[in-house]
Design a binder for these strands. Structure first.
Lengths: 159, 159
DNA sequence: TGTGCATTGATATGTTATAACAAGGATGCT
DNA sequence: AGCATCCTTGTTATAACATATCAATGCACA
């Protein structure tokens, strides 16, 4: 995989293509990417960083798109269910998905320095945890895999 | 690994030996397992279930061991730092560690039916996430690996 | 055109977590 | 013993994260 999130890249193009993929997804599946939802996704994607629901709300309300918590939470709920965004459990925060549409069990690299988040793939069933689950007769439905640490840039800066 | 948590076992003995291990740990490392902390750990261990901080607080305050949130959070903070308990990020809840002392990168199987939690081992560096991290130059400091689903018992009951 | 359903607006509240500061109590040193 | 220090606890207040509920709006399709 890539971890493009930690590298210099043409982020404007990155956002455009991701938004296009998101729109295509919604169109294909009959989901309505309304203005609030669309803008919420753009905000989440505008940096590869985890944003709290209230951070998102602040952005939205600054643009007149709703001022109460449910606005943000509803948008996030929609995006997460649609696979267009993910919740980072370790931070109680949210991040835009960089490859929407692909049915995935995401794993994250989370920088504690700059809060950047890179998305990777896992296969829970093939891990040691998957072995343990099989041995125990446990049926895995959802997995959370998150690693916290320092991204290359923050290793140089703060060490 | 075992996932003893989902199986019938002599839980009284299980708790006794875990508490002994915890005490040994604290003694060896000069940590003070005070009454509140000790009782908090016992409560967390009393079932192999995740307990919210306020659930724990309710137990503690029912026993006259402190009535305000910081009491519970301080105890949990101590236990987690000492490796005697773990936070389940996906639930914002806490669980007693069943093999304290061993320096470990735990992974969890979490039943959404009964909130039971089984603890397994991972090696973040050897996973695909570890590969991704290396490729990206990311330094992993802590990992969160949690799988939600249904334990054997709850598969039978609720399906 | 109207009926139904998804979405949004708004108020209130629930749940999880921490900041800040005062007071108590153990430890170690002289 | 006296005292300093540091860890721990008590308490108040508040911050941060999240949801229940109900009314109003608007789109979609018969």
């Amino acid at each position: 995989m890539s971890a493009i999130e930690f590298r210099d890249h043409d982020h404007a193009a990155c956002m455009r293509s991701t938004m296009q993929a998101a729109e295509a997804q919604c169109a294909a599946r009959g989901l309505r990417l309304t203005p609030v939802r669309r803008r919420a996704l753009e905000i989440l994607l505008s940096e590869h960083r985890a944003l709290g629901a209230y951070d998102l709300l602040a952005h939205l309300s600054a643009e007149g798109l709703g001022a109460q918590p449910p606005v943000a939470y509803r948008a996030l709920d929609f995006l997460v269910k649609a696979g267009l965004a993910h919740k980072i459990e370790a931070l109680n925060a949210y991040v835009g998905c960089v490859h929407p549409g692909e049915d995935h069990a995401p794993a994250f690299l989370i920088c504690r320095g700059c809060r950047s988040v890179a998305e990777a793939e896992t296969s829970p069933t093939k891990s040691r945890l998957g072995d343990a689950a099989r041995a125990a007769g446990f049926r895995i439905e959802r997995s959370v895999v998150e690693a916290e640490g320092l991204c290359p840039a923050c290793q140089e800066t703060g060490a």
